[in-house]
């Protein structure tokens, strides 16, 4: 009976896993085929003519895809790093302490996830202009924090809600300094949350379009800007090629952090706490 149950369980897990992979990978296959196609029309199952033109364009100086790839990686990493810096203390405060006006703070932090960006982007633009932050990479990194920080804070609040600060007191009573306590006790305990929250923050920053365009003033050309040019104009071949490059960092990071994303991770389990 017991054995039967676990067999059922594991085959169920295998099935859902296979389904999930199909669901994630299947849409990418036409994208990959399109990037090598010269014309692909219904009802042909495969393109009649193949071409490397789209990839040649994607790697040319004119398209600027490679420069833009490095720039986008830099911006997203910086935005992720800053989100962690802000999100960890904020998550600790929200997850562990009760204080006056806590729900108001929670609402304010969640606001960028609720209010559609397009509604506030022109207002943000004028604020950034008056602060002299437009047309520069630091300005773009800063504006990306608006949508990334809520994810980070939310995940960290969940982590800290399940966190027992008695471990810290124990370390301190054994003579560890505050930085040592943080490094050896707190950080390992909250690491899964930092990874999951950081992954969210990276991917959210990675996909920003309108905020980057307005605050960057066209000087800061990230990959989504190049991608949407072709996606909206119906050039499936070039969209496919840039799209394949575009999803690469996300996949790499996903693979590197996959073990922290399983259902057994405290980071995911603690999500419901806030």
């Amino acid at each position: 009976m017991q054995r039967n149950g676990s067999l059922l369980g594991s085959s169920f897990r295998f099935l859902t896993g296979a389904l999930l992979i199909t669901w994630l990978v299947l849409p990418l296959i036409p994208l990959a085929i399109w990037s090598f196609a010269k014309g692909w029309f219904y009802p042909s199952l495969l393109p009649k003519m193949w071409s490397l033109k789209a990839w040649k364009y994607a790697f040319s100086d004119t398209s600027g895809v490679l420069d833009s790839l490095w720039l986008t990686i830099g911006i997203s990493l910086a935005a992720t790093f800053l989100s962690v810096l802000v999100g960890v203390p904020a998550g600790r405060a929200l997850g562990m302490y009760q204080f006056k006006g806590k729900s108001a703070v929670e609402l304010l932090i969640l606001a960028p996830m609720i209010v559609p960006g397009i509604a506030v982007v022109l207002g943000i633009h004028s604020v950034f202009i008056s602060m002299g932050l437009t047309n520069s990479v630091p300005g773009v990194i800063l504006v990306h924090l608006i949508p990334t920080i809520p994810y980070m804070v939310l995940v960290m609040a969940g982590i800290f809600a399940n966190y027992d600060p008695a471990f810290e007191s124990q370390a301190r009573s054994l003579g560890a300094s505050a930085p040592k306590t943080f490094w050896y006790v707190t950080l390992p305990a909250i690491m899964p949350g930092i990874i999951v929250g950081g992954l969210f923050a990276f991917l959210v920053s990675w996909s920003q379009y309108i905020l980057t365009l307005l605050i960057g003033g066209g000087r800061v050309v990230t990959l989504p800007l190049l991608l949407f040019n072709f996606a909206t104009s119906g050039r499936n071949d070039i969209t496919g090629a840039i799209g394949m490059i575009y999803i690469l960092p996300g996949i790499i990071i996903l693979i590197l952090t996959a073990k922290h994303l399983s259902g057994r991770s405290g980071a995911v389990g603690g999500f419901g706490q806030i």
Binding site: H125, I129, L214, G217, R219, T232
Partner: peptide, 19 residues
């Protein structure tokens, strides 16, 4: 600077004038 829609550039100039 590639745009998906020309109005995006007009909005940048408009926003700059208002600020």
């Amino acid at each position: 600077v590639g745009l998906s829609d020309t109005v995006e550039a007009v909005n940048i100039v408009l926003g700059e004038k208002e600020s």
